[in-house]
């Protein structure tokens, strides 16, 4: 394989990994704190994309300077995160902590179904296009292949959100509270920690990750019903590969999946999708706690 092709594969892989990480890091964070695999995560990703697109088109038509559109994207994502996060956690999830896993998964699956149609009812079923933020930054060349600078922005947003989350968990008082809740819920309650609030905050952080992912991918795609279905299940693969509930694991998982997919597209296109789930099976079969995950005790 020549150096040129290798550079292209690495760049394509990074681009892809950036998006996957943004979605997966929230999924894994929520699992880490709440012990719930949130299937509706994908719908929040979709909502983020819709809201950001709709808001940006609206404001651009009102004469907003195009350079401000990046803030509009972020604002749209934050609005969605702050609406969906607390409401899903308080209204639905709160009632099923400690229930069987099938109840938890099915509840979030039902929320996915509901939000999926809510998007259609709010924004219609025809696709929306909004590419100004994507075009605006210009392009650069790697190994003779032109990439849009927007790729950098995506990687940047993704990496900063990851760093932010790690800082939040490791470097702040909030993080210490989160860790203590994860370690022992009862003791935390006894110590006077408002566990409910921690759960709401953690779930909202997860929702924000999905919404930001959706908002920043939106300018590069056509936003239309059903566009999230495959990304979501891929982010499941990322989380499983990295280790459920592990932030660094999500980073490693997205890099592996992104690079594997880029490698497959350039070399054996038929395996583009299968390779992701093959890796997932291999990791789960030989290291079920994921590459980064710690071994859990068997509960009796």
């Amino acid at each position: 394989m020549d150096i040129g092709l290798l550079t292209i594969i690495i760049f394509d892989g990074l681009n892809y990994a950036a998006v996957l990480f943004l979605i997966a890091v929230g999924l894994t964070f929520v699992y880490g704190v709440l012990r719930i695999l949130n299937i509706s995560h994908g719908a929040i990703y979709g909502l983020g994309a819709y809201m950001a697109t709709w808001l940006t088109i609206l404001l651009l038509n009102k004469g907003l300077p195009p350079y401000l559109s990046y803030f509009v994207l972020l604002t749209g994502a934050i609005i969605i995160g702050l609406i969906t996060g607390p409401s899903i956690e308080r209204l639905c999830l709160r009632r099923i902590y400690g229930s069987d896993i099938h109840i938890q998964l099915l509840l979030t699956f039902s929320i996915l179904l509901i939000l999926d149609d809510a998007m259609k009812l709010i924004w219609g079923v025809e696709p929306m296009f909004m590419s100004e933020p994507y075009f605006l930054l210009g392009q650069f060349s790697v190994g003779g292949i032109i990439y849009p600078r927007y790729t950098f922005l995506l990687i940047g947003v993704s990496a900063s959100f990851g760093v932010f989350l790690v800082w939040l968990v490791r470097g702040t008082r909030f993080g210490k509270l989160v860790v203590s809740v994860i370690q022992d819920r009862e003791i935390s309650v006894a110590m006077g920690i408002n566990v409910g609030l921690i759960y709401t905050a953690a779930f909202t952080m997860g929702a924000l990750s999905a919404a930001i992912g959706g908002a920043f991918i939106a300018p590069t795609i056509s936003v239309a019903p059903g566009f999230a279905a495959e990304v979501v299940v891929m982010s499941f693969a990322v989380v499983a590969i990295g280790g459920l509930g592990n932030l660094e694991g999500a980073a490693l998982g997205s890099l592996i999946v992104g690079l594997a997919r880029a490698l497959a597209i350039h070399l054996v296109a038929e395996l583009e999708l299968a390779v992701i789930y093959l890796i997932m099976v291999l990791v789960l079969a030989f290291r079920p706690q994921g590459l980064f995950g710690a071994v859990e005790e068997r509960r009796i």
């Binding site: 092709l5 892809y16 003779g144 292949i145 032109i146 990439y147 590069t220 795609i221 350039h266």
Partner: peptide, 29 residues
């Protein structure tokens, strides 16, 4: 709706003519 790696591959191929039968929203994207 997501063609970044495919476009890289088309760019690397440097063919005189690129043919596509993409359609609808996929083609716009």
């Amino acid at each position: 709706g997501e063609y970044s790696a495919e476009i890289s591959k088309l760019l690397a191929a440097r063919a005189d003519v690129v043919h596509s039968s993409f359609w609808g929203g996929g083609l716009v994207t």
